[in-house]
Simulated assay, not measured.
Amino acid sequence: MRQKSYEEERYYEEDNDEIDLVDLIFMLIRRWKVIVLMMIPTIILGFIFAITRPSVYEANTTLIVSSGMAGIGLNNSDISLNQKLVVTYSEIAKSRDILTRVISKYDLPETPEILGKKISIGIVKDTELIKLAYSCNDPKLAEAVTNELANEFIKKVGQVMKVRNVNVVEKAIEPLQPLPKKRGRTLLASIIFGGMLGIGVAALIEFLHKKLRKSADIEKILGVQILGMIPEIDFDEKVGEQDE
């Protein structure tokens, strides 16, 4: 008897899950206009942003870090020390002092924090090389600022570490092509965001809408099972038919 009760309860729970899924589907069907109306302006804004996004150019330079020890051959400990210096120097390259001097020289309309976000510093794996890159809307300015950052970085290392063990391997040159704008990704993101926003608004409307749509809603409120339903009758139509 207990097993039967458990099975009935389990069936009832699974049936409720199925009903809830069906309710969600019908909610999306009922509120499709709301979802579409929320998606349209979001997609339009995403499209406008994608086509009006300015071109960004990136220039990069390559630096090499050595431990400063003279010698023809390097052992594993020397290479390990140089790689640790690379990590340390990567942090120095974004110091406020360096960024402030570069901003002052080229009269950049940015704060050191904003300029720091436009600079990327990467370590070439298993090497003593540092890749320093800067991106902006002007390719000539990108080249000049990148090379100046490298020069200021080398000076700063000499002041802090008292050694000149950083050298330029490859200077930055003026970039000819801008970075990819990734317009397709922007449009896809706007479609997804618009759909999620529309579904959220539709769900909020459904939550605030207290109209009972089916007998199951009444059963949940009253806690009893409905025995039958009375069909809707149009009395005016019935009276008209009798008079004829």
Rank of each mutant, 00 (worst) to 15 (best):
I130W: 04
E8Q: 15
R164A: 01
A59F: 02
D138E: 06
I199G: 11
A172K: 03
D217T: 07
K211Q: 12
S104L: 13
P231A: 12
E206Y: 04
K181T: 07
M38S: 11
S120K: 13
S90V: 09
S55G: 08
K84Y: 12
D97M: 05
D236W: 08
K84V: 08
G200H: 12
P139Q: 05
M39S: 09
L222F: 14
M161D: 02
I25H: 04
K181Q: 13
P41S: 11
S120T: 14
S120I: 07
I123L: 08
E148W: 02
L108G: 05
Q225H: 15
I103V: 13
I29R: 09
V168P: 00
K156F: 08
D20K: 12
S66F: 05
S95Y: 04
R164V: 04
V168Y: 01
D243T: 05
L115S: 06
A133P: 02
A150Q: 08
I121P: 01
Y89F: 15
K33G: 04
N76C: 00
S104R: 14
A172S: 04
E152S: 08
I226P: 09
F207L: 14
E9C: 01
Q225N: 13
L63P: 00
L63T: 03
S135W: 00
I226D: 14
P41Q: 14
V22C: 01
L149W: 03
Q225M: 07
A203K: 14
Y89L: 11
P175G: 07
L129V: 13
I205P: 01
K117L: 11
V86D: 01
M1C: 09
Y57P: 04
T111S: 15
M27I: 14
Y106C: 06
L187R: 09
K118D: 03
A150I: 03
D234A: 08
R2N: 12
G46E: 05
S135P: 02
K105H: 14
N165K: 11
Q159R: 14
S90N: 09
E219S: 09
E174C: 05
I205W: 07
K155A: 08
V34F: 06
T146R: 07
S80D: 07
T61A: 02
D243P: 00
E8R: 14
M27D: 08
E237W: 03
L179A: 10
L81A: 10
F26W: 10
Q177C: 01
R185N: 10
V86K: 09
